[in-house]
Amino acid sequence: MTVSRPHSQFPWLKGKFRAVADPWNQIGVQTKFYGRTLRSIVIAVTRYRIELIRQIAQMGLGAGALIVIGGTVAIVGFLTVTTGALVAVQGYTDFAEIGVEALTGFASAFFNVRLIAPATTAVALAATIGAGATAQLGAMRINEEIDALEVMGIRSIAYLASTRVVAGLLVVIPLYCVGVLASFWAARFGTTVIYGQSTGVYDHYFRTFLNPTDLVWSFAQCIMLAVVIMLVHTYYGFSARGGPAGVGEAVGRAVRTSLILSAFVLVMISLAVYGQSGNFNLAG
């Protein structure tokens, strides 16, 4: 016996509506997951302290071959050294064209703090800690380990997602300190040693334009970026499907999404704090 299906009118309209509605539904699902993860932070801190400490150690020092080179801290330091050296090269050559190469110290104090150090730390966090979290959670999802935790009565979001968000939030503090100091050192080394500028001139302009308030806001930017990155990566790890290939696809999507959101958050916070003018006046 066959059951007749009702005729679907306007199938082309239904397809177009689904194409428009599906992305918004996906955003709603992600927002719901982010809210549950943030609400479960208290449970993660109070009930799953051992897992939280383990995640902090793993994110800070790394695992496997990553420990040999010093863990995530070494990667962040290396990246910020290169960006700090770029400030020295680009800043000195550009300022030298108009005869004010002495302002290279100003460029280091201004751009490293407000933009380069937070952005570089976010990239390193997404490419190392975030990608690792997505791969771990994705592997657990396809192996049905997350389902097993829920069957045992363990709150999977608090145990797996919230602990990683808190750990990333704590680990980013030393990462940011290493990143800022490395960028300062690289810019000073490149300007004074390679280009031969006087250390007194460089230090004078660097200390003149280094605003402690900017350091505080830069640190706040890194905190917000760490939360956003870990939320995105834990979501894509939880929603991974399709076996090992699906896990790899989830990692790629997570890194892409977290970098886009990090850039957006960084720009929005910078505009909110410094305004369109940058709250900066250069006078002789």
Rank of each mutant, 00 (worst) to 15 (best):
L38R: 10
A74S: 05
Y274F: 14
F17H: 08
F10N: 15
R155G: 10
N143S: 15
S108G: 13
Q90G: 13
I98S: 12
R155V: 09
F219I: 07
G132E: 01
L170Q: 04
Y236E: 10
V247P: 01
G284L: 13
I69K: 04
R47C: 08
I173Q: 11
V251M: 04
V273Q: 10
T104E: 07
V81E: 09
A126V: 00
G275T: 05
P6V: 02
M59R: 00
L175P: 00
F264C: 08
W12D: 14
R241N: 03
R155A: 13
A148H: 10
G60D: 01
G64M: 06
Y159R: 10
Y92I: 06
I116W: 07
L259M: 13
A182F: 09
L149F: 10
T199L: 14
T192C: 08
L13Q: 12
D94G: 09
I260Y: 03
V76L: 00
V193R: 04
Y236M: 09
A107P: 07
L103N: 08
A182D: 08
V232D: 01
W217I: 15
V100R: 11
V227C: 15
R114G: 05
S277P: 06
L259Y: 08
I43H: 12
A263I: 14
W24C: 09
L86V: 12
T80W: 11
G252F: 02
T191A: 03
R241I: 03
W12N: 13
V171N: 01
A88D: 11
D94W: 10
L266T: 03
T191H: 02
